[in-house]
Design a protein around this nucleic acid. Structure first.
Lengths: 191, 191
DNA sequence: TTTTGCACTTAACCTAGATTAAGAAGTGAC
DNA sequence: GTCACTTCTTAATCTAGGTTAAGTGCAAAA
């Protein structure tokens, strides 16, 4: 069975017909590494589910500095939540870090599914709740932990990514410069 | 009409019977300033909606330092999302900063309402989505803005609170020490 | 084969914000 | 009215992490 259905069925049970209806509203696309799925200033039209590969979302502030909001690998969802719900231009970029197979669910189809299959409204509520908890957690970590401790947490959350993505992007995720990250890493190795 | 129904009807329309059913599942309570609604280590059993007064949620790390996660004043919801959805002990405190009238909605009643009035599942999905966007935003701010800019943002979000709550709690919210906040404030006044 | 570009490192120097400590000023309890 | 308690301020000193700059290693163009 497809990964995305397994993912959904962790929280709600669907009938065979519902599964079929759901899948009929999605599209599968393949993207090469370095593809940009969404540019800052664009309206986000899709939720993306990762069958394989790696994505990241980030923004770029005035100082031309990138800040990574999140990574998504196999089994994770990705999107610009702000733009997706408001259908206004967002300020996130979504980029493919490693060749990816994605399930695309358009905003309109998602809304239709909420009424056609109310269980999916429940599913996305739960998904959003979990994401909210994770973001609250990370926020508190950024307020109270050192860079080293934040790196620890990153490894717990995204351990499998540590050696697959450029380390400057890990630095950006935990909120330090690549230079400091490099220094910190060599300090950690000496222990 | 009660504030909480107005709040709900910003996103979904309820019939008179649904409103009645909803209200029958809630309780109104009054709390004095400094009351603790939830202690770290406890299981959060209620979502709180603020009719009047001010609440704050915070945690305390090993170093005995408080970090404010959020404030809630009139028309806002409050809870320990992690504990609420997992029904496991959380690590947030919820405290009353200013005498408050609150609407309490228990976890069980909330779950019942999701099935009795599916529109409420939609409402809480949307509420959670908006909260998620706000947290993502704040996270990016903490990664990229200076303390001064974060204070600006605080004022935009919670402007009416600036002179109602101890400034050391604003400092904690934006992630600086009270001493630094004081210094920063006097620097701002000189401009 | 060379060149271009990107990821990473190292090191010297810099700064936003932390820490420590002390005092001032307000607020409430008895 | 005073004692206890808390918030806020000021100032000296310290440090985690930023900045600037130079250099290395490597892979993809060309």
């Amino acid at each position: 069975m497809s990964l995305i259905l397994t993912n959904i069925e962790k929280h709600v049970q669907l009938t065979a017909e519902e599964k079929e209806l759901f899948l009929s509203k999605t599209e599968i696309h393949h993207y090469k590494a370095k593809s940009i799925l969404l540019n800052s200033g664009q309206i986000c039209k899709y939720s993306y589910f990762v069958n394989s590969g790696i994505l990241r979302s980030f923004n770029i502030n005035d100082n031309i500095v990138e800040h990574v909001l999140s990574f998504a690998c196999e089994g994770w969802w990705m999107g610009d939540m702000y733009s997706l719900i408001s259908q206004k231009p967002g300020n996130l970029f979504i980029e493919v870090l490693e060749d990816a197979e994605l399930v695309l669910l358009s905003k309109e189809n998602q809304e239709q599914l909420y009424t056609e299959i109310p269980k999916l409204e429940r599913f996305f509520r739960i998904l959003t709740e979990n994401s909210l908890v994770a973001h609250q957690d990370r926020l508190m970590d950024n307020l109270s932990l050192s860079a080293e401790e934040r790196f620890d947490k990153f490894n717990k959350r995204y351990g499998n990514l540590t050696h697959k993505i450029p380390q400057k992007q890990i630095a950006s995720y935990i909120g330090v410069t690549p230079e400091f990250f490099s220094k910190m890493k060599s300090r950690l190795l000496k222990k």
